[in-house]
Amino acid sequence: MKRGPHLRYVLRQAWLLVGASPWLTAVSALTIALALTLVGLFAMVQFNASRLLRELGQSLTVQVYLKDGTPPPVAAQVEQRVRGRDGVRAVRALSREQDRARNRKLLDPELLQGLDEAAIPGQPVLEVEIEAELASRGDVEALVAWTKTLHGVESVEDVAFGAEKLRLLFAGVEIARTIGFVLSIVLLASAMFFVFSTIRLSVFSRRDEIDILGLVGATPTFIRIPFLVEGVLQGLCGAVLATLLLGGLHLELRGLVRDVYMLNVPWSLLPPGMVVWLFVGGPAVGLVASGLSVGRYLRT
């Protein structure tokens, strides 16, 4: 003889509990939905920031400035050394004149009027196209460390690749991640508190029924399961709502990015498996909250 309640019985009782207070259930589900949506947005921002940084890392350019008058064999030695690093895709050697020509294009034409050619900065330089893993700030520091070793090489004057900008970007991403994490915890905790409260009310409204079930021989588990399922159902409703909200937001954002920034947007800005996470997270929030509530208020 089976011990546990039948699924059909459990679902029916849970459905009755939900139906007994549809407004509370709706508010609970909405809170979960909002929490999940915001958490989802944070995840989306993180995901895209990381992706952007990774793409940035795919095409970094490091300028290795050589001292004026560096003899070609020495320059070739430096180039050899640079090529020794993993991820170096191409090294282009520019002479002082080539560098000057490049700089001239960057400068304001008005400023160039009557300017002595020699006044335009120009220096022999190795333009290194490098592919680097940029997953964390540590990766930037590794790159910096590598450029420092080049500093020590004879006739290398300076090495530049915009490390400061990258550092700033990573710092921004990390701050956003921390804020997102803390806010996510706060949001999920408040959603849980809502579910906790609705389940408590649900338990109180069924006091008589709970007592009677106990008296005719129901185990505490049998009595509790419908309330737990009620919490899970609220979480499930929240997940459905959050999916719709995030889906809508995603469409909007994608359109915005495409129209305003003319970027070639990848098909999805959403982290992979996001919907799965929503449908795991929502019911999990509901289950934990109702479990806490039942554990506290449903003593048999």
Binding site: K2, P5, H6, I212, V216, G217, A218, F222
Partner: peptide
């Protein structure tokens, strides 16, 4: 039916 649901009898 409560008394039988508790026992997990088939519907």
């Amino acid at each position: 039916a409560i008394a039988l649901e508790i026992l997990g009898l088939p519907r």
